[in-house]
């Protein structure tokens, strides 16, 4: 029988639809009977949405500026190389 700890271990797989039919059914049955696990799965789901909604996962502007500068330099070198060949 699936216990709360066992459910917590596979909660992400349940949310992402990665469980097989039998596992999925046992999670659903457990959730019908256990409000703590219903809260846990609901909260985990909200946490995932929260993470997705959080768009500030970008690195700092300095890192992007340095990458940009290097690419601009390489592009100019390539272009001037080409025009020298012509």
């Amino acid at each position: 029988m699936l216990m709360c700890r066992g459910l917590a271990e596979i909660a992400s797989d349940y949310i992402d639809g990665e469980l097989n039919g039998r596992q999925n059914l046992s999670v659903k049955l457990h959730l019908m009977m256990c409000r703590h696990c219903r809260t846990f799965v609901g909260n985990l789901r909200t946490s995932i949405h929260l993470m997705k909604a959080h768009s500030s996962a970008h690195p700092d502007a300095d890192v992007l500026r340095r990458i940009d500068a290097r690419v601009t330099e390489a592009l100019s070198a390539k272009k001037s190389g080409k025009s020298n060949d012509e």
Partner: peptide
């Protein structure tokens, strides 16, 4: 878990 995350993300 004590609280439900009632509010939407």
């Amino acid at each position: 878990p004590k609280l439900k995350f009632h509010e939407s993300a």
